[in-house]
Design a protein around this nucleic acid. Sequence first.
DNA 1: TCTTTTTTTGAGCACTCGCTCAAAACCGAG
DNA 2: CTCGGTTTTGAGCGAGTGCTCAAAAAAAGA
Lengths: 194, 194
Amino acid sequence: MATAETREALVEGALATLREKGYAHASAREIAGRAGCNQALIFYHFGSVDGLLLAALDRVAELRRVRYQALVDESRNLKELVAAARTVFAEDLELGHTAVLVEMITAAQANAALRPEVAARLRPWRGFAAEALRGTPAALLGRPEELAHGVVAMFLGLELLAVLDDDPAPADALFERAGSLSSLLDLFSLRRRS
Amino acid sequence: MATAETREALVEGALATLREKGYAHASAREIAGRAGCNQALIFYHFGSVDGLLLAALDRVAELRRVRYQALVDESRNLKELVAAARTVFAEDLELGHTAVLVEMITAAQANAALRPEVAARLRPWRGFAAEALRGTPAALLGRPEELAHGVVAMFLGLELLAVLDDDPAPADALFERAGSLSSLLDLFSLRRRS
DNA sequence: TCTTTTTTTGAGCACTCGCTCAAAACCGAG
DNA sequence: CTCGGTTTTGAGCGAGTGCTCAAAAAAAGA
């Protein structure tokens, strides 16, 4: 088989494995099984299992970049830009790309060698989100249960990213970020009331 | 040694390991080494490594409950209640308890048996956050870079919690929660301007 | 066709893991 | 001190891991 086809099959196998089984079970034998080839090919083509997983992450990042650029080019005002961001986020969730991201990020927490690689591949996400930030926020209300759920989620996420960036992440900085988050959330939100 | 002392040493060793090395490296041999005893004691006293880690999570949750209850009892109005919540969150970060939480949550993603156990021990956190929710929010502005960082963090966290709860987490629900989050963030934030 | 290079394979090495188990050590009661 | 139950130990089993390697298979060039 041509090199490109083999690499393609392995990347697809890696993405499927990350999505369905997670990083902990993304072993060479498991991925090669899905790709229908020998596990040694992973080391021949990508050097290591982590090398393959990073290549899979590259593909996810590139797909997102292309999709987002296309939507941005069509946007004529802020409202459309925000809608484009929402669309890309939603598509990533449905494609399972968010799950792949989360797996690689949490894996990087326990793997110093993986950490800078994953952090570098995360930058496009952040830059793209920054682009959607203009305009003034408006206050909104929501259900307390959802608010409670949300705040727990937010601090978990901030903690994960802080570890990734080798940021000591003192409590004060986390709370400052939490505060600044609110204007973006208002920007994203079309909801009203409880 | 008395049973209680041994269990105490093992729980402390488990917490230190989770904090410094993460779930992936929280092996029986590693934890027992820190506790200064044989690895077989983990299975004698806790049945399994995960059993010990859940016991460690129990301790973290109980400590938080006690600390928070004490602060709530002293609060006379909403402002003091919110301040109490901030204090507990900040203390958890400094104690490394947040890191332990994140490790167990991300580990639960790839371990179906662990998932409901961790989810159950997470409930107190959510309930406590819900208690701080009253009053009306005010709009705030922040730096775009921090907003970008924050929104990425938030969606990661929502995704993690959605997996934990066996929630299919459709994109619409995530965005609704993101919207409702803003009022809580305003509540937590004492910041102003860029 | 024969030769050279690229691609693929299966066996296997060295390691770590969770966990078991029989035996040793400990310790309080009689 | 002796006994009996509790606690601790070290060795070890079976399984899974990343990765290597010599050799086989396939593809490409002459």
